[in-house]
Design a protein around this nucleic acid. Structure first.
Lengths: 218, 218
DNA sequence: ACGGACCTCCCCCGCACGGGGGAGCCGGTC
DNA sequence: GACCGGCTCCCCCGTGCGGGGGAGGTCCGT
């Protein structure tokens, strides 16, 4: 029986590429796709794939969190193959700690991609040495306070909703109208968001939202 | 007769994705692939594609240089569609100056990718294909001329630089200090950017920059 | 019963922002 | 020469924004 794979990546182009590469193999079958980590668990339960090819950066739930969620909640969970780029090196260790079974660079050759899927399906774990080496080189750049800030932010539901509307370009008055509350209330929420994000104004808050993946561009 | 396309990208996965997306269309045919800009010219001469989907960052010869080389040396050159994820505004403008006919983000949806290929094949040029549709949808109520404004949005060098600093969260005063000009000058540039982007305030301008791929999040 | 989030609304206040004008200078084009 | 686009700087002016306070209300866990 073939190895069944679930693709999880927010970029349709990458999904199409992975599908094309993997389905060219007679012993590998792509049984499903998801555009965000938040959609993974029900899909895994229903499709019961052998391997999940999981992107790291996704809008709602990132690959790390999704990996944790799957391994925690699904009995006999699938193997998790984290598909990453050089830019995501910072997450490699986090993903390993979350229980991922292997790593794959998006720029790997098709044969390597196929090989990686077969390996993790067989229970082997693999790590591309190149990515780990780069990790050490690039570690400590730390020029992304916005991301860290947002991850630590713990916005309340209302604050997150207000931030979402801010990222749609709405003014405080428009947000108030949309949420059917007073303008002063919106100001309070906005102030709370700015404080939690370490942002000076709504523009910086919106930037932080984009940089952190809180909103999906495109 | 179908639109013929040559794919130029150093990542096989991306090539596979583009091929899968484009060949799903009956009127588009992928006639060749190259992994580097250095291999483009002989391929273009031999295959005579209508469109070259050209990556920017490649090991030997980048997409900008390859675009220049093709347009300089090939009679009746193909349309050049620059495809990239890494969104240096430098690259964008360099590519356009080099004579590229369009600009496409890898994270665009398949339909947008197909649309972009057809457009440039027909002789249209497009700058930020994704953003036009999205902003049109967002302000689709019709009260705002954002769509037309953005289509006309040809930011000057200075305006693009100001917008870039806006997307870094800088205030007008900070931008003025950075560019060593007066605050009034920055205000003029910002106003021009807002007008050209159909944005009401700097927040909406930053959003448009992210949505259009003018800046790359993450 | 109590504290503590959370959501809601209110006050005052300073200021950066953005719109509307105009103007001089430079480099390229016709 | 005249023209035009781009960059620079200047004026006035209204207001949306954000800081710093405070204060009710509900729900929840202890």
């Amino acid at each position: 029986m073939p190895v069944t794979v679930l693709l999880v990546d927010d970029e349709p182009l990458v999904r199409a590429g992975l599908r094309a590469v993997l389905e060219a193999q007679p012993d590998i079958e792509v049984v499903g796709e998801a555009a965000d980590g938040a959609a993974v668990i029900p899909l895994v339960r229903r499709l019961r794939p052998d391997v999940v090819a999981m992107d790291v950066r996704m809008p709602l739930m990132d690959g790390i969190e999704a990996t944790r969620a799957v391994l925690r909640t699904v009995p006999e969970p699938p193997k998790i193959l984290v598909v990453t780029t050089f830019e995501d090196d910072e997450y490699v260790y986090d993903a390993l700690r979350a229980g991922a079974d292997g790593f794959l660079l998006k720029r790997a050759r098709p044969a390597e991609i196929v090989h990686a899927v077969r390996l993790v399906a067989e229970g082997e774990s693999l790590l591309f040495p190149a990515s780990v080496r780069r990790l050490a080189a690039r570690y400590g750049d730390g020029d992304r306070p916005a991301r860290a800030a947002l991850e630590r932010a713990r916005l309340t539901e209302r604050e997150a909703e207000v931030l979402r509307l801010m990222t749609r370009g709405l003014s405080n008055a428009e947000i108030a109208a949309r949420l059917v509350v007073g303008a002063e209330t919106v100001k309070s929420h906005v102030s709370a968001v700015l404080a939690k994000l370490g942002a000076r104004d709504r523009t910086q808050a919106v930037i932080a939202a984009y940089e952190s993946g809180f909103v999906e561009p495109g």
